[in-house]
Nucleic acid binder design. Structure first.
Lengths: 268, 268
DNA sequence: GTTTATTGAGAGCAGTGCTCTCTTTAATCA
DNA sequence: TGATTAAAGAGAGCACTGCTCTCAATAAAC
């Protein structure tokens, strides 16, 4: 008789709870009613199983029924916790963005604050490392959009911008320290429309980097993910490059130069 | 009673026929038995419908049953022409690679032979133009691999390497014409393993470009697709960049410089 | 005109996402 | 502690998918 009177509330609870439980594996010792704790634990289990499936078989093969089986429960039961397959994908998306963000932040923080070239290299290496370790999850974030699925921007934008934020922080820091410059070769002119966009970004993020260098930073950003994507998605042939690490490191070094960073270890 | 005695032969015929019919829409006036011609026409129809579905709903949503419906035929009938969904995906993959290759070649050929910077820009613009016009097909080629699907290298490598071949041709031509150089700033050292790979590539494609510039060319290649993928896959936010064309052109100009090309219109 | 290879139809299997109803379980309140 | 009630799981069912198998119709080839 109680039946589903207000499923909205239930789903909202799901989202909020998992939104918190997404990071590390907290939420078990958190207070709350026993029901809430059991619920959070089940959602966390679903997320964990989803992550496993995602890693094993890829995003498009992610099956709620399979998750239910792994969970030892009938398929309709998981709908008590997750609104839909899309919702689960969104949770996994946020989860993956945050894991990547955490690793990038940690890698960057491990390099001395003033070593901007080193931090840039650390950031790039962390992205590549995570991507190669988690190709399916990387594909979910940076590959073709899952058909019929549109990520809800209001939930994914924040975690999804962590890497570019970290990169901008490095470049801005370098610029303010006088270690970011076109080094005597100004790039192509920045047309008015692009300049407006860059000005808005500079304002929004509180940056000091001028237009040309900011555009170059954006190029370094897209190029980094281009290189990683090529490697993860198998765009280099089978045997073209035997040591992809060397290729990537070379690319990263050139990109640091493109961005205006003094190459690590280079003598001015 | 005849039944399926040798399905292999049939499928081989399919592949060959469509392998030819894939480019423009020939294969209708070609000789052959009436059966063969009717078959080729049906396969071409399937391919056309598949291309439409692919463009409309994306690769993972490509459904043989839907193609059968559009074809006005029961689902099992299409299996007489296409071995499986994978096979259809492979055909569409080859089809898309060739269309992209054709457009890139045409765009490059429209620029005077000696204008290497112009040809580079034309190549990049053609890739971007096609990608924005055909996002689903671009995603099939350069996005996350379709789950459970592994493209057969022996059939897709040739059409899949047309863009990088065109790019290498431009860069090698520029180098031989003395218009490709590090311009006084040698990049990072090329380690031994990478140098070996590059030497093999140089030999295989008959190039003259030295290691450092060849590696930079590879970076320009991956970066080009990185920029296009970011745009097509929506990695830039909704409103970060209002005029993406300007951003891309700027990136392309910087990449030409990275590759060692004299920027178009620049004074030496 | 007969033979025979090819093609399409249809049923069927195992899987998917998702909904609906019914029953069981377990937390909460008197 | 015992009754109430909210939450959760079970199970059937719908519409869809890829793919296989068998059988009947068709049309080319001899």
């Amino acid at each position: 008789m109680p039946e589903d009177k207000n499923p909205e509330d239930k789903n909202a609870a799901v989202s909020e709870t998992t939104g918190e439980a997404v990071g590390p594996s907290a939420a078990a010792t958190r207070p709350g009613t026993p029901r809430e704790r059991a619920r959070a634990r089940t959602v966390a289990d679903i997320l964990r199983l989803g992550r496993e499936q995602l890693a094993l078989h890829g995003a498009a093969a992610l099956s709620l029924r399979a998750v239910a089986r792994d969970l030892g429960v009938v398929s309709s039961a998981v709908y008590r916790y997750v609104e839909s397959r899309e919702e689960l994908l969104t949770l996994l998306l946020i989860d993956a963005y945050n894991e990547l963000g955490d690793e990038v932040d940690a890698a960057v923080a491990a390099v001395p604050e003033g070593d901007f070239g080193g931090r840039f290299a650390a950031l790039g290496g962390a992205v590549r490392g995570w991507a190669l370790r988690e190709p399916s999850r990387y594909a979910l974030l940076f590959g073709s959009p899952v058909p019929g699925y549109r990520a809800p921007a209001e939930r994914t934008t924040a975690p999804g911008t962590r890497v570019i934020s970290a990169l901008m922080t490095i470049l801005d820091g370098a610029f303010r320290a006088g270690q970011l410059s076109a080094q005597g070769r100004p790039g192509p002119a920045v047309p008015a429309g692009l300049a407006r966009d860059l000005a808005k970004i500079r304002l929004e993020f509180g940056l000091a980097v001028p237009d040309d260098l900011l555009a170059r930073g954006a190029l370094a950003w897209t190029s980094l993910f281009g290189a990683v994507s090529f490697e993860v998605f198998g765009q280099y042939g089978e045997d073209s490059f035997t040591d992809r690490g060397q290729l990537f490191d070379h690319h990263l070094a050139v990109l640091a130069d493109v961005a205006g960073l003094r190459a690590a270890g280079a003598v001015p």
